[in-house]
Design a protein around this nucleic acid. Structure first.
Lengths: 212, 212
DNA sequence: TCAGTATCGTACCATACTGTACGGTCAAAA
DNA sequence: TTTTGACCGTACAGTATGGTACGATACTGA
């Protein structure tokens, strides 16, 4: 969107990299909006501005472009979604912060669209589902489980808590009903207060089950 | 699949109804497999056996057929998914039975495929998401909430339990991690033992939070 | 028996799709 | 300045799509 005309210091390798990025950004929007089958290479090429030949010089097929788009998207958002856990503190605060931030990130339109896309294509393209899982949920699960293990050792949580089980339940509760309703498109975007409320409810239930 | 040749008592109204059902059954499979954009009317017509003209004599457009397929599918499965709650007994047993059955139903391939389809199309066709929500999740939520209200009044659960909040959390926990992993297609179908284990964990956490 | 209708096969329309080909253009590298 | 190579516009191949048209045929209902 930001690279209308080539600027000065723009040659060779760098130029190619810029164009590639531009294609990926545009293709991402279209794929997220229309799904894999519903997306046309011609439209992408038209939006990029160049010719279809050029598009195919960067990505040999629709499939390849799709994979590249997802890889790029997931890599960008991996840090964000798994960086929601700050280790060390007491569960009451840490988990509340995690839960809020987690849901807020999940509810962003781009991430809802990504989830829809992944769900839709995971059946036909298992590697898509796998890539998504590895870069998102698996990370969140692991980070959270590690934090929980620490909290157990620190005496904040019940001694017999299974970190991975607890982490998964915490994620499910944090995700909440709102998230599903947003995915099904039966409710408008919630207010920040509703998100906070969901987080509180999640933490309350979690601590009732696993608190020391 | 089962109606190859017309049988004897087969005329007028009934005949038409049978053919309609046959088309719906076949179209359902194709839509669930390939999604809306990926599905071709020609393929459906070929699988049905007749001509494309006939297909269009029953459903005026791809859109109309799609809507009809979903309506039919949802109506058939509505009872099953919301009939998983048997009122009256103590939460320990009722909720365990619900949780197990709920997850087992959710994990059936046809329902996973339906969920994928609904997620995928809910963005573009809000009425699809709404119809699904009304016929599935909304029912489950309401039935469960009503049971929980009864259990609170019966002294089985904490007096300050909010039935709808508790119901939603119970559903989220029941759904579990497995369900997501199946949707993302990163794990094979779980054994019955795993399903039971998930249900136990869900009930344990639920009762820790809301038990009297 | 006979009219009416549902269905059939097939061809077709207009459009869209992915992917390729090709000659012209323009800017960077030598 | 000359060469190189990326990029452009456009056209095209080949196939598939949703949807229609139409005459032939088989079957239902009276």
């Amino acid at each position: 969107m930001e690279t209308g005309k080539p600027q000065q210091a723009d040659s060779g390798e760098a130029r190619r990299e810029r164009k590639r990025r531009q294609i990926l950004d545009i293709a991402r929007d279209v794929f997220l909006r229309d799904g894999f089958s519903g997306t046309s290479m011609s439209e992408i090429s038209a939006k990029v501005g160049g010719s279809k030949g050029t598009l195919y010089a960067y990505f040999a097929s629709k499939n390849e472009l799709f994979q590249a788009v997802l890889e790029d998207f997931l890599a960008r958002h991996e840090a964000e979604i798994s960086g929601t856990i700050t280790a060390g503190g007491p569960p009451g605060e840490v988990l509340l912060a995690f839960s809020e931030r987690f849901l807020e990130v999940l509810l962003r339109p781009e991430n809802l669209a990504l989830l829809r896309l992944v769900y839709a294509e995971a059946g036909r393209f298992p590697e898509v589902g796998q890539a998504f899982y590895d870069s998102g949920p698996a990370n969140a699960e692991q980070h959270l489980a590690e934090y929980i293990r620490g909290a157990v050792e620190g005496g904040f949580l019940k001694q017999d808590t299974e970190p991975y089980l607890a982490a998964r339940q915490m994620i499910l509760l944090s995700q909440g009903w709102i998230h599903n309703r947003r995915l099904w498109n039966v409710t408008p975007a919630p207010s920040e207060a509703e998100i906070k409320e969901n987080a509180h409810a999640a933490v309350r239930t979690f601590l009732a089950a696993f608190g020391a």
